[in-house]
Design a protein around this nucleic acid. Structure first.
Lengths: 135, 135
DNA sequence: CCGGATCCGTTTCGATACTG
DNA sequence: CAGTATCGAAACGGATCCGG
């Protein structure tokens, strides 16, 4: 995961930041409020290794997609949260969810969520965003 | 690029298919009509290696995102084109373009295209789709 | 316990050279 | 033109260890 893209064509840069095997999954878990702590991210079901997770978190923080602070309620752990820049990847995530829902029977996206997303994209976007922000 | 994802959570599967360093760039070039041939894809500015491109094209074909046929006008080369499934990645690509346009000064997305995309997403989507389909 | 760091065997990547 | 063969470099993943 080093930066090595040469082109300045659209998408190229974006993939340089989040176009690896794990970053978008980490963002997904943070965006949808499934995880806030290292431990939760680690156990969110994808099977990422500890060293890889640590490296990705460092990277995502460095490029300004998330921030890390100590949990005031439990000083021995950290809270990872999205920056506005990180939260703005939500539309990308939503489109991936839609695509997966359409083409992969294996994907267990909640059907009612997908249906609402298809019908009223802007509203769902605003809702998820609001929920993520209050955390 | 083997399939090794274990989770059936949303996005996980999608990334299994197109969540690598190159697939979305290949799809971008096909979607936006910048390339149809191996050679064009190779020289589209990103610096992909020949073996990697060949492997990705094989993979994308196998999972049903693109198809390959011999060029009737020049029997010694092949035309790569998108399937409907491949073309349906367009919304993902567009969101990545928007995100990149917002956060990366290096990205050279045509400003008027980005502006139109922001203003009238559905229309731009339909236009790009139509152009891609007629090829 | 929590959040990693380190070590290490295995897999994948990628640049280049070469081929049908 | 459209790839394949090769091979070193990088990334991955599992296990284990460690400071707080």
């Amino acid at each position: 995961m080093t930066t090595r893209r040469r082109s300045n064509c659209p998408i190229s840069f974006t993939l340089d930041l989040i176009g690896d095997r794990w970053s978008l999954l980490i963002l997904r878990d943070l965006v949808f409020g499934r995880a806030r702590f290292y431990r939760q991210l680690l156990e969110s079901g994808e099977g990422i290794a500890t060293n890889v997770l640590a490296e990705r978190l460092r990277r995502l923080e460095r490029v300004g997609l998330l921030s890390k602070r100590r949990d005031p309620d439990d000083r021995k752990r950290f809270i990872y949260s999205l920056t506005p820049k990180g939260l703005d990847t939500l539309p990308i995530l939503l489109e991936m969810i839609l695509w997966g829902a359409k083409y992969d029977p294996r994907t267990a996206a909640p059907p009612e969520f997908v249906a609402r997303l298809r019908k009223d994209r802007e509203r769902v976007l605003a809702e998820v965003r609001a929920r993520a922000e209050e955390k």
